[in-house]
């Protein structure tokens, strides 16, 4: 052990104890080319889909936070908090369309009023 200590005074090993593994504090989830991708690029469809899909609803923050207009071009964290502040709630009408209630159809209203008889 003494010999090793003496040796280390003159030589710094390249292998070091890195400590317990943790996720990096800042993570950018914006789509980028896969490290093994032969072209080192992503097709435009990735950004186009994100633009269309509005994955960062329900806040409709696109205009407020996004400068380029492409949602996929910014990290999720830069778009601001997804959860509302304490004591505040989102109205269902503020959510993206897929979370809203679908409107009643006349057939459904009839079915309820007739106890289901109108369905047969």
């Amino acid at each position: 052990m003494q010999a090793t200590r003496y040796l280390l005074q003159h030589r710094q090993p390249m292998i070091r104890f890195l400590g317990k593994r943790t996720a990096p504090p800042k993570l950018d989830h914006t789509p980028k080319a896969h490290p093994a991708s032969p072209t080192h690029s992503l097709p435009n469809s990735f950004a186009a889909y994100r633009e269309k899909a509005q994955q960062h609803g329900p806040l409709n923050q696109k205009m407020e936070y996004s400068t380029s207009g492409a949602i996929g071009s910014h990290s999720g964290s830069s778009l601001g908090p997804v959860e509302p502040a304490s004591g505040q709630y989102f109205d269902r009408s503020e959510l993206p369309k897929r979370f809203r209630r679908t409107p009643w159809t006349q057939a459904e209203i009839d079915a309820i009023e007739s106890g289901g008889a109108s369905m047969f």
Binding site: H29, P31, K32, A33, H34, S37, F46
Partner: peptide, 12 residues
């Protein structure tokens, strides 16, 4: 199949 750095397709 084309993916990004997190193995996502264009559908995340």
């Amino acid at each position: 199949l084309v993916i990004d750095q997190e193995y996502r397709t264009k559908l995340p």
